[in-house]
């Protein structure tokens, strides 16, 4: 029995599917997050050099990885939407942008809070932190452009083009910032220099997966709202249980 995957590329069917999927991502995310933090705080030993402050790494590194990958996935969805004219892909890109921006913010925030005890300054022009800041600007540019155009179709396509141009520039920006940083300031303390105890790696990996599941759950929830907003005049939306009855249908 060949499953017709394309059935789910229509907003109406995807709306139902996303609704069912959210709990399957949200709950595992919370559980994994809790376990990951437990291992990170109780099982992982105190680091010789950085004593307790290093535990920030368990959220800082996953957030940085997430912010980078969500941008590339967002650009991928945007490109799909631009090339195949599929509205759902553009909606998915629009849904991912705020989550990616928030992960970039978390990465910067935790990086600053970790930098203070380690390097003695809230903000260090380290190559990674600087590229993360520029990535946050790219996110804000995408969100601002999408928000400032009324017509959703043009907003999707314009933001998609910007995301593609942005994703081409991300590596260029990273290497130029890396080159610029080593020129001016010499190598700062390498984060990955300390050999990672196995418990540390486990904790970080769990928090990473938890963040992934969380990002998917939030993006699915947001894309459902976007679908409703954009398809408000359609028949299938007015027939939805949650629209018909005050308390009927899914949460």
């Amino acid at each position: 029995m060949a499953i017709n995957w394309f059935k789910y590329s229509a907003p109406s069917t995807f709306y139902g599917l996303a609704g069912k999927l959210i709990p399957f991502f949200a709950w595992p995310a919370a559980i994994l997050f809790a376990i990951g933090l437990y291992i990170g705080f109780f099982v992982a030993p105190t680091d010789a050099v950085q004593s307790e402050a290093y535990r920030i790494i368990f959220i800082h590194v996953p957030a940085s990885i997430l912010s980078m990958f969500i941008y590339l996935i967002m650009a991928g969805y945007a490109a799909l939407g631009l090339i195949f004219n599929t509205r759902l892909s553009s909606m998915m890109a629009q849904a991912l942008a705020p989550t990616g921006a928030l992960f970039a913010f978390i990465s910067l925030w935790t990086g600053a809070l970790w930098g203070k005890p380690m390097w003695g300054a809230w903000w260090v022009w380290d190559a990674r932190l600087t590229s993360e800041l520029i990535l946050l600007f790219l996110y804000l540019g995408f969100i601002a452009l999408q928000a400032s155009i009324e017509d959703p179709r043009r907003a999707d396509k314009a933001a998609a083009l910007l995301a593609i141009v942005g994703s081409v520039n991300v590596p260029i920006i990273y290497f130029s910032v890396k080159w610029w940083n080593t020129l001016h300031q010499g190598a700062t303390i390498k984060m990955s220099g300390t050999s990672m105890h196995v418990a540390m790696q486990q904790a970080m990996f769990m928090v990473l997966v938890a963040c992934w599941l969380y990002a998917i759950a939030v993006a699915l929830a947001r894309v459902r709202s976007i679908i409703l907003e954009r398809e408000r005049n359609t028949q299938w939306v007015s027939e939805l249980p949650e629209v018909k009855y005050e308390d009927g249908g899914a949460k």
């Binding site: 307790e52 402050a53 920030i56 957030a63 928030l102 978390i106 809070l113 970790w114 939030v218």
Partner: peptide, 29 residues
Amino acid sequence: NGYAFYVWGSYGVTVLVFAVEALMARNRR
């Protein structure tokens, strides 16, 4: 070990951001 502010400052803000984002998604819905 004296780094309480930094560690709990990071995790506090992270959990806060997750909570706010979930609430905003629900509110939007």
